[in-house]
């Protein structure tokens, strides 16, 4: 799960304070494991150092919460690339895939297309594994099957999510 990319994505929606980012992150992606404030600010400052975000204005008073962060073109490009590229089809990808879909919806990008691309990548990998299975010995076949079943589970999740994109969009873009 890529916290920096997720935060960048949230920022692409609208310029936000660190506190808002933490709250949104926890609401959509935290799932009972809130992001510590410290990690939010260290990540944001790393992003600012790399030129992916800038601090737009500082409200009067003290504390980090007065800073408003805005995404830069560099940052936006990185988000774009991340969303369009399929993840390497390996098992246990749900969290990443989920983050990407939600962000895509939030940013009004073609989430269905991302899912299709991902499906293709998955299927491609499955074909490779099937070929290994058909050609190789039993041990190879069993290992390949393990990968196949996990990929299949991801694929099913992709299918289900694809079928419910509309509902999800309403959920993340109130």
């Amino acid at each position: 799960m890529s916290v920096p990319l997720t935060l960048l994505g949230l920022l692409e929606r609208e310029p936000s304070h660190g506190y808002d980012l933490k709250r949104d992150y926890d609401a959509f992606f935290g799932r009972g494991k809130p992001l510590p404030f410290g990690q939010v600010y260290s990540t944001l400052s790393r992003l600012a150092r790399d030129g992916k975000v800038v601090i737009s204005d500082v409200a009067p008073g003290s504390g980090p919460d007065r800073k408003r962060y805005v995404i830069t073109d560099v940052g936006a490009t990185e988000v774009e690339q991340w969303l369009t590229q399929p993840v390497d089809p390996e098992p246990h990808l749900q969290t990443v895939l989920f983050a990407k879909v939600v962000l895509a919806l939030m940013l009004d990008r073609p989430a269905a297309e991302y899912l299709d691309t991902q499906r293709s990548a998955h299927l491609h990998r499955m074909r490779e594994l099937t070929e290994i299975k058909r050609a190789g010995n039993l041990v190879d076949a069993l290992l390949a099957d393990h990968g196949l079943y996990h990929l299949e589970a991801d694929l099913r999740w992709i299918e289900m999510t694809g079928a419910r994109l509309d509902a999800l969009r309403k959920e993340v873009r109130p």
Binding site: P86, S120, A121, L123, H124, M126, R127, E128, T130
Partner: peptide, 27 residues
């Protein structure tokens, strides 16, 4: 079923009566 489709050389998706052929993924 994806596992059955994986026996094929290539797949196309049919959705809402249209064929959705993804670009070939370079390995």
């Amino acid at each position: 079923e994806a596992r059955i489709a994986a026996y094929a050389d290539r797949e196309v998706m049919v959705r809402d009566g249209r064929v959705n052929a993804p670009d070939r993924i370079a390995s």
